[in-house]
């Protein structure tokens, strides 16, 4: 997909009309993710029920690709357990880096798979993975994500 089409068909909707934007006041995990070079800056909130992601949201600011990507990500991880969410993050980042290309793996990402073409836009890779990277960090190192609360 070429860039303008990607914006028009996928990114704009989530960027301009996000469904998962907001703050969870009584979140169990809170973690900030920043791309220092471009200024994308998000905070991810998560509530857990045992191992299962019961609620998640984000706020912050950044380019449309970073914001749309995190909005789509939250859709994908709700109701999943930690392990599944971490695995999805690995798939997403692998796809964006162009290391994972088989359709079966990518299908697991559902709508987030639409960002696959960012793999051909090296300048925007960091934007697309920010949310996923932050989520992975949060689940793998919950101690970091509790200090921030």
């Amino acid at each position: 997909m070429e860039l303008k089409q990607l914006y028009r068909e996928i990114v704009n909707e989530h960027n301009l009309h996000p469904v998962n934007r907001g703050k969870i006041e009584d979140a169990d995990l809170v973690l900030r993710g920043v791309n220092p070079s471009c200024g994308d800056d998000i905070t991810l909130y998560m509530k857990l029920d045992g191992d299962v992601i019961k609620a998640a949201s984000y706020d912050g600011s950044g380019c449309a690709i970073s914001q749309a990507s995190v909005d789509m990500m939250v859709d994908q991880i709700l109701g999943k357990n930690k392990e599944e969410a971490i695995k999805l993050a690995g798939t997403f980042m692998g796809m964006i880096k162009g290391e994972i290309t088989d359709e079966e793996s990518i299908e697991a990402l559902d709508e987030a798979a639409a960002l696959q073409d960012v793999a051909h836009m090296p300048a925007r890779v960091k934007c697309a993975v920010l949310g996923w990277h932050t989520m992975q960090e949060m689940l793998e190192h919950p101690e970091k994500a509790q200090e921030n609360k």
């Binding site: 070429e2 860039l3 303008k4 914006y7 070079s37 471009c38 200024g39 950044g62 380019c63 449309a64 690709i65 836009m121 300048a123 925007r124 934007c127």
Partner: peptide, 21 residues
Amino acid sequence: VHPHDMSSVLNDDHVCIRAGH
């Protein structure tokens, strides 16, 4: 519109400008 998106869209039209800090 974030400057990075602006710059990427312009790049699609072969216009090179800087975006960032």
